[in-house]
Every structure is written in structure tokens, then in C-alpha cells.
Design a protein around this nucleic acid. Structure first.
Length: 752
DNA sequence: TGCGCAGGTGTTTTT
DNA sequence: CACCTGCGCA
């Protein structure tokens, strides 16, 4: 039989082998959830299920990527590549690309990120002459988003009595009108925001029975990760897609539900059992990740929540070290203490940087740790925060590309029509907008006939030049690939040049970012796939992909060894040998916004539970008596959650109020030793680091031993295809057989 | 029209 | 503290 089943415990194995009919896996933290999901997919394929009939949905790209890689690893070949594994948003975007026209959208629809969406809202609030303090873009956006996540259209919204009451109470009676205008504007722009990807998927399925039936047939097996985080829209889509075969497997843990602010509802877990007859429920309660102390602490904390599914997580792992509770004077001391602890732990126990994670409640907390780590010469990486694609210079560049692909995208046109400066000012824009609205024309069409809109003189000729330029780009689209086109855009628009000319240091960085965007597009077009598979690589697809990428999706360099800094939200699903959970203070964690609502407070507690359960071996929990907030030093009480951890599990050596600077270890002998170690390590790393120069495909023959930049070492076992485009089958030491297109793969020959 | 500066304002969490 | 906005000036 299949060897991959052998490493599973009985519950896991049952979950993998129960293929037909609805299945709910209640999987506690660290109980091997990902292993079950990936093995299940591999098992399905092993049973002869076609890859394109399996749909697996996750919440983050990272989780999707890991799942794909692990399936590949189990199967030992690249047959996993055509699996539909991805986030709800990215998979639906992919499907909607095919189906968009049936609901009136162009297939090259633009995907608006939160910033784009807020800009549209800002314009609408202005055009309605509303109080911009009251109708702040973020507030309006959140309200609309919440409605959409519940599948409310603007019509539903306007008709709902309770909503109306609520908006009037908060003095925002025009919310429904803004929602309507926003929806119409996005549609007119051929654009969808994040929520629309769900809403429109639902709309498409419910209004086009033939499409619904197509996807119901196609996806014979559906798997949903983190089911406790699904919102109403996602819930209904899953239900629709799975209605024919009812082979829906959901994995979830109510204790880890931390996205209710995004419309997620734990109720979906309970509802699942009511929606289908004979739902098989399997609980995974053995934790393989953490020491007993860590697990006991986590269980004790979550025990303070009223609402939860009964389960008890246990482990066979040893008791392990006590949890370190650390109190410092200020947030800067907190940073220093964490950096020092990492140094010390590295030295004593020979951990790598990547064995450590610092987890915090809010992104703003990263500052003190960045400083202390930098000072201690510890490499780190912050996940989250501003994505590469949200930087101004990148958004500007992308806006041009978006216009080429989808000229209806008014938002993008407005963003760059006068950047770089070409003398098309505010008054001209508002004239054009007015004319467009009055004559029911798209902004682009009005640009094309700007003189009819009453524009003359210099502005008119500038606009005409702009239109000619964009049209020229559009006609290049069929002749050039995405990279060549983007390069042309950078040159012709003067975008690259304007960045280069600005001269200051940060401008140089922006210039380099623009170059990096070009590199990314180049890579997208040139390297069809890791395995050399060729799929469509149009500019339109590229643009739809990048909006859904976050900073966390960026690949780490192969040789990177860094401490991870991230929010607790972002850490879900990950594990580290050593974890610092920081900032355990009232008003911060639990957040000040959550103190007056039991449900909110319980969600904060679940968040703390998630944080604790990331740790495998060592856990530190820290807090500071004083912290800079808005530039002012404020004092804090320790978090109520700390009192919920049984005392006997905690080491309080550093928990008593220290004097400021107590933990700064200027004369620490450890530090000197560390310096030496660093030098050694650098030498050692040097060999590994060395520039990876790929060898020519011509020199590769059957039997040649090679090294792949990502896949490691292997041997070519077969060659096929024409001389100019040879495809090699390579047996990798770690990953097994893979087919690689030599023209695209980066391989170097290993001399034995 | 464009840029620089002063002042106000705000912090959860993310696809 | 850091970002954004609005205002005033060239």
C-alpha cells in the first residue's frame, strides 16, 4: 500500500481515507492539520482522481503554497501543479477571469486593493458634498465591506431597517447612497475590490445555472482550510460548489477563530453539521508541536472562554522548560531584552536565527525590536506591513499597465494622467468627470473626445498626447510580451526617468523599486513555472495576481537565516522552536477596542491562544510598564491574560519590576563570545552563498549530476524534446522525480 | 500649478 | 511619532 499513510495516527489516517461525503475535521493547534490535508490530496490523486477535480481553498497564499509543495513532496513528481490550490480570493479571481463577461465585467477586470477602493470612496464623498470627517474613507469602506461579506447588495443595504437605524444613530444616513455609488463606480471602472471577488463569484454562480453546474461537476472534491475563518459569502459559495457531490472536507478549530472583524463566523463550523446529512466528524486532539508546559498554558488560557467546542488537546512531548515571563520598564527595554535573549539562546543551544519568532498584536510594535535586533547584528525579516505593490512608485507604474489592459479603470487613469506632470490639473479633471457623468460616458471615452467636453488649449493637447500614448501601448500588447511592454511604458511615460532624476537617496530606492517591478514582470514572463510548464502569461493575468499578493508572499532568498517578526494574525498556521509573544498589556493585548464586548474579548483570548501555540520548545511572554504611544510615554497594567496562566508553569525570574536598563548587557561575557561566533559563521556561510551561475543546457546529458537553485541536488535520468528546448527528467535527492525545461531552469553541473 | 511647511490626527488585526 | 491634509507662497 501507500507509504505516505504510515506516518499518520489513527485519527489522521481516518481523515485522509474518508473520501466520500461531507467531513469535518476539528483539528486542534499543532495536531497535524496540514499534514492531513496534504496527505488527503495526495491520497485522492493516488486513487486516480484527476488533479483538476480537486479544489483546495486557504486563506493565505503562504498556506496554499506550502500545501502545494507538500503534496508535491508526497507524490514525488510535479503532477500537483495543476491542482486548484489557492486562496479564496485568488481562485475566484481566476475563475472570474473566464466568467466575468457573463456578469458584465471585462475579463481583464482590475482588482482594487484597499487603497484604490478608499480613493474611489473619497471621490464619491466629495462629489456628494458630505462631511469628510464623518464619512472617512476607512469607516465607509469597512461598513461596505461588512455588508458585502454578508452578501448584502446596496439595495439590500438600503432596504434594511436596522442598518438604517444604525447609520442614522451614527449620523451617517448617506451610507447607503455612498454604497450604491461605489458599487456603480466600480462596475463602470471594470474593477472589483477584494470583497467583490467573493460577491461576484456568488452572483455568477447564482445567476448562471450552466456555470454553476460546470463548476459543480468540475470540483468533485473540495477541501477548505481554516473553516472557522469563513464568512457568510464564502460559506454560501462553498455550499453551492459542493452541492452536487457533497464531497466537502472542512478543517477548522473554533479556538483559533480570529477574523470576526472581517466577517468570519465560527458559527459556520456548527452550521456545517446541520447542512448535510451524515456529516462525519473527526477530532484531532494530539498535539505534536509543543512541550507540555506550553500546551497546558494554552489550554488554561482558552478555558476562560465561554463559547467553545469541547475538546482536550494533549501531547506525548515532555514537560519542557517553563514559560519565561518577562517584565521590562519600557518598550525599548523589551526590545533589548528580546534581542539579548536571542543572542544568548543562540549561543547556548546553537539555534539559528530562523528558529526564533517575535509575535505582536499590532504592526506598530515592530519598531523597538527592529532597533534592538539591528543593534545586536541579528538578521530579521518583518512580514506584513506595506506590500511591495503598495508603494507609491509601484502603484503609479502599475496604474499605467492597468489602463492599457482595462481603459475603463478611471481610478488608475486619474492616478497617473498628470504624473509625471504634463499640465493636466485638477480643474481639467473635474470638468472631464462632470462631462462623463452627465453624458453617461466612461472617463476614458471622454478623454478621447476632450474638446467636446469643453477642454481647450494646452490641456487639450496634453490629453490628446496622453490618449495617443496609451493607444500606442495598447496596440503593442499583441506584439510584445508583458515585460517588453512594461519596459516601453517605463521609458515612454518618463516614469523611470523622473525617478532617476530626483537624485536623493530615497529617490534612488524608488528608482530601484521600479526596476525591481520590471524584473518581477520579466521573471513572470520568462520563467513560465518552476518546473518549466508553459501557461498563459499575459499582462492582464499578472496584474490580477499582484493585487492579491502580500508582503509575506515574497520568497526568501535560499540562504537567508532570519528572525521572524510578525503579527499574531499572520503567524497562524506557523510554528517556531522559540517564540516571543510581546506587549502583554491591557489596552494593547487585549486591545482597548475589545474591552467592553465579551465576544471581542474572547476573540482576543483566542488570539493569545494562537500566539502561545506557535511555540515548540521555548516560549517567552513579555510586557513593558511604559510604552511610547503617539510619541508619548504612557504606563500600562499587565494583561489580564497573564493571570490565566497557571503559576507553576511560569518562570518569573525576569517578571519583577526591573530598573530601567537592567537587562542591557553591556559587559556580558556572552557578547564577546558571540562576536567570535559571528565571524566563524560568516565564513561558513560564504561557501553556500556564492553566486549561483547556471550552466548551459548543452552540457547536460543523461547521468549528469546537477544542482537546482531551489530543489537541491539531483541527477538527470532522461532527456527528451528538440535540441533547442530540451526537457530533462531529474531525480532529486530530496524531492524525487521532476520534469524540468532546461532553457528555463537554473541548473549548475556538479563536479563529482 | 506645484511645492513646502505647519498643524491636526490617529492604532487593532488582512485577502 | 509619523502620516496626511490643507494652506500659503513662488
Amino acid at each position: 500500500m501507500s507509504a505516505y499513510l504510515d506516518s499518520l495516527n489513527s485519527g489522521q489516517r481516518e481523515a485522509v481515507e474518508y473520501l466520500e461525503g461531507p467531513l469535518m475535521i476539528v483539528a486542534g493547534a499543532g495536531s497535524g492539520k496540514t499534514k492531513v490535508l496534504t496527505t488527503r490530496i495526495a491520497h485522492l490523486m493516488h486513487q486516480g482522481v484527476d488533479t483538476f477535480r480537486i479544489l483546495a481553498l486557504t486563506f493565505t497564499n503562504k498556506a496554499a503554497k506550502e500545501m502545494k509543495e507538500r503534496v508535491e513532496l508526497i507524490l514525488g513528481d510535479n503532477s500537483a501543479r495543476s491542482l486548484f490550490i489557492g486562496t479564496f480570493h485568488s481562485i475566484f479571481a481566476r475563475i472570474l477571469r473566464f466568467e466575468a463577461e457573463s456578469i458584465g465585467y471585462p475579463s481583464n477586470f482590475t482588482i482594487y486593493d484597499t487603497t484604490d477602493a478608499k480613493n474611489v470612496i473619497k471621490d464619491i464623498v466629495k462629489s456628494l458634498n458630505l462631511d469628510e470627517k464623518l464619512y472617512k474613507p476607512a469607516t465607509v469602506y469597512n461598513r461596505i465591506s461588512a455588508a458585502k461579506n454578508n452578501l448584502y447588495t446596496y439595495k439590500d443595504y438600503q432596504a434594511d431597517y436596522d442598518i438604517k437605524q444604525e447609520d442614522e444613530r451614527s449620523k451617517r444616513p448617506m451610507m447607503g447612497v455612498i454604497f450604491e455609488k461605489y458599487s456603480k463606480q466600480c462596475f463602470k471602472n471594470g474593477a472589483m475590490d477584494f470583497d467583490d471577488l467573493l460577491v461576484n463569484m456568488y452572483l455568477m454562480l447564482t445567476t448562471h445555472p450552466e456555470s454553476l453546474s460546470k463548476y459543480q461537476h468540475k470540483f468533485r472534491y473540495i477541501l477548505i482550510d481554516e473553516y472557522q475563518d469563513t464568512n457568510t459569502a464564502q460559506y454560501h459559495i462553498i455550499k453551492l460548489l459542493g452541492a452536487m457531490h457533497e464531497n466537502i472536507c472542512v478543517v477548522g478549530d473554533d479556538a483559533q477563530s480570529i477574523y470576526s472583524f472581517r466577517g468570519a463566523s465560527v458559527k459556520n463550523i456548527f452550521q456545517f453539521q446541520k447542512d448535510y446529512e451524515d456529516v462525519k466528524v473527526i477530532k484531532l486532539e494530539q498535539n505534536y508541536r509543543s512541550t507540555e508546559s506550553i500546551l497546558l498554558a494554552a489550554n488554561a488560557v482558552i478555558g476562560h472562554n465561554k463559547t467553545q467546542i469541547e475538546k482536550s488537546l494533549w501531547t506525548e512531548n515532555g514537560k519542557g522548560q517553563k514559560i519565561n515571563l518577562v517584565c521590562t520598564f519600557t518598550d525599548n527595554d523589551e526590545g533589548r531584552h528580546v534581542a539579548d535573549s536571542i543572542s544568548e539562546k543562540k549561543l547556548r543551544n546553537h539555534f539559528k536565527n530562523s528558529d526564533f519568532a517575535i509575535l505582536y498584536r499590532t504592526n506598530a510594535q515592530s519598531r523597538s525590536f527592529e532597533e534592538s535586533l539591528r543593534r545586536s547584528n541579528i538578521a530579521y525579516r518583518i512580514y506584513g506591513g506595506l506590500s511591495f505593490y503598495q508603494r507609491k512608485e509601484i502603484k503609479d507604474f502599475v496604474a499605467y499597465l492597468r489602463i492599457i489592459v482595462n481603459p475603463k479603470d478611471e481610478e488608475s487613469i486619474k492616478r497617473v494622467i498628470n504624473y509625471p506632470t504634463r499640465g493636466i490639473g485638477k480643474s481639467t479633471i473635474s470638468k472631464l468627470t462632470l462631462y462623463a457623468n452627465e453624458n453617461d460616458k466612461s472617463f476614458w471615452d471622454v478623454l478621447c473626445e476632450c474638446r467636446a467636453a469643453g477642454i481647450g488649449g494646452r490641456a487639450a493637447s496634453s490629453i490628446e498626447n496622453f490618449v495617443v500614448m496609451i493607444r500606442a501601448f495598447q496596440s503593442m500588447e499583441s506584439k510584445k510580451n508583458a515585460f517588453e511592454l512594461a519596459e516601453e511604458v517605463g521609458k515612454t511615460t518618463g516614469l523611470i526617468k523622473s525617478l532617476y532624476n530626483e537624485g536623493a537617496v530615497e529617490d534612488l530606492a524608488r528608482y530601484e523599486n521600479a526596476q525591481e517591478l520590471l524584473n518581477a514582470i520579466q521573471e513572470f514572463t520568462q520563467t513560465p513555472d518552476e518546473e518549466g510548464e508553459i501557461i498563459e502569461k499575459s499582462l492582464g493575468i499578472y496584474l490580477q495576481q499582484i493585487t492579491l499578493l502580500t508582503d509575506a508572499d515574497k520568497d526568501d532568498p535560499e540562504d537567508s537565516d532570519v528572525v521572524t517578526l510578525m503579527t499574531i494574525h499572520a503567524s497562524k498556521g506557523l510554528e517556531f522552536p522559540n517564540v516571543f509573544v510581546v506587549g502583554l498589556e491591557e489596552n494593547l493585548f487585549p486591545s482597548s477596542q475589545s474591552l467592553y464586548d465579551l465576544d471581542d474579548l474572547e476573540e482576543e483570548r483566542r488570539l493569545f491562544y494562537v500566539a502561545i501555540t506557535r511555540a515548540k520548545t521555548n516560549l517567552w511572554i513579555t510586557y513593558a510598564n511604559h510604552r511610547y504611544r503617539y510619541g508619548k510615554l504612557v504606563s500600562n497594567e499587565s494583561s489580564r491574560f497573564l493571570d490565566e496562566i497557571p503559576e507553576d508553569l511560569v518562570d518569573t525570574t525576569h517578571a519583577r519590576k526591573p530598573k530601567s536598563g537592567q537587562f542591557s548587557a553591556k559587559r556580558d561575557p556572552l557578547k564577546q563570545a558571540l562576536q567570535q561566533r559571528k565571524v566563524q559563521k560568516a565564513n561558513y556561510n560564504h561557501e553556500v552563498k556564492g553566486q549561483f551561475v547556471a550552466d548551459s543546457p548543452k552540457d547536460m546529458k543523461e547521468g549528469t549530476k546537477v544542482e537546482h537553485q531551489r530543489f537541491g541536488f539531483g541527477k538527470i535520468s532522461a532527456l527528451e524534446g528538440p535540441e533547442a528546448n530540451k526537457i530533462a527528467t531529474i531525480e532529486f535527492d530530496l524531492l524525487g522525480k521532476k520534469k524540468i525545461m532546461l532553457n528555463y531552469a537554473k541548473l549548475r553541473i556538479v563536479n563529482v
